[in-house]
């Protein structure tokens, strides 16, 4: 079990499944899935999405913008929702995070509802993404005091960054999976102190690298990796800001 924080920085977690192109899809599927999950996700909304495709052919570059419909099913408190679009299922969880067990239960339910209706021939991509918004305790901070994942600047460079992107992709499972980590500035918080996005996206980099039946096990494994990466990115000083609950030797919470 991972560390526990009464004030976690997590603002959104997303689990997504993109089905391979040979899986059939039609416009009735969102409605059929809704019938199976409407007790947990009763509120429906629709949005139009734009996807873009750029092709380089012998005639030159061609660009195409396609509009597709995405249906969203929200829980009563709107803290969690399911998105369904062409060959896409995503389950989003907003803060306050209901624990991994609570989130995973809904991931499993939504995925089962989809696979009961659609013959999923393969998974192009699975992703588990955790977006953290971290507000610094003062106006001027040294990133290295709070992070073990940051941009290193040599002493001959100005230390006053107006903007930055620190990003990296880590390999897992012999490069079947990857974890993309990014640290970027976010819009300022109410306090006026700098705020940072720590975005951890663990995904299946090899299309069809996981069998459909093993997808939920993959998600569990992905969650373990995301936790490891998160803990690897931060220092104890930041853990103090999240007010980590320490456990004593008998495993009981001590604070």
């Amino acid at each position: 079990m991972g560390r526990r924080y009464p004030h976690p920085p997590l603002i959104e977690a997303v689990c997504e499944f993109r089905l391979a192109q040979d899986s059939s899809w039609d416009l009735t599927i969102p409605g059929l899935v809704y019938e199976k999950i409407k007790n947990e996700f009763p509120h429906r909304e629709q949005r139009l999405m734009q996807d873009m495709e750029i092709s380089r052919t012998q005639e030159g570059l061609q660009q195409q913008v396609r509009t597709s419909e995405r249906v969203l099913f929200f829980t009563k408190d709107r803290g969690m929702f399911v998105q369904l679009g062409p060959r896409l299922l995503a389950i989003n969880c907003l803060k306050p995070y209901p624990t991994w067990a609570g989130f995973k239960q809904n991931i499993g339910k939504a995925f089962k509802a989809l696979t009961d209706i659609v013959e999923v021939k393969g998974l192009q991509r699975i992703g588990l993404r955790y977006i953290n918004l971290i507000e610094m305790p003062s106006s001027l901070v040294r990133l290295e005091d709070y992070f073990e994942f940051y941009l290193f600047l040599g002493p001959r460079l100005s230390q006053n960054m107006a903007h930055f992107i620190a990003g990296c992709e880590f390999q897992y499972a012999i490069d079947r999976d990857r974890c993309r980590v990014q640290l970027t500035p976010a819009p300022s918080a109410s306090s006026g102190h700098p705020t940072l996005n720590l975005d951890i996206d663990y995904f299946l980099a090899k299309p069809r690298g996981v069998e459909v039946e093993s997808a939920i096990d993959w998600v569990e494994e992905a969650h373990n990796r995301v936790e490891e990466v998160f803990e690897g990115c931060i220092t104890d000083r930041l853990r103090e800001l999240f007010q980590e609950v320490k456990e004593n030797a008998s495993g009981e919470s001590a604070g």
Binding site: M52, I54, R56, Q58, L133
Partner: peptide, 19 residues
């Protein structure tokens, strides 16, 4: 055969859109 194609999909998180 001489074709490269890049597909960009609209993100599925809300955080980026709201920020």
């Amino acid at each position: 055969e001489g074709i490269s194609r890049v597909s960009l999909h609209e993100p599925i998180d809300l955080t980026g859109e709201v920020q």
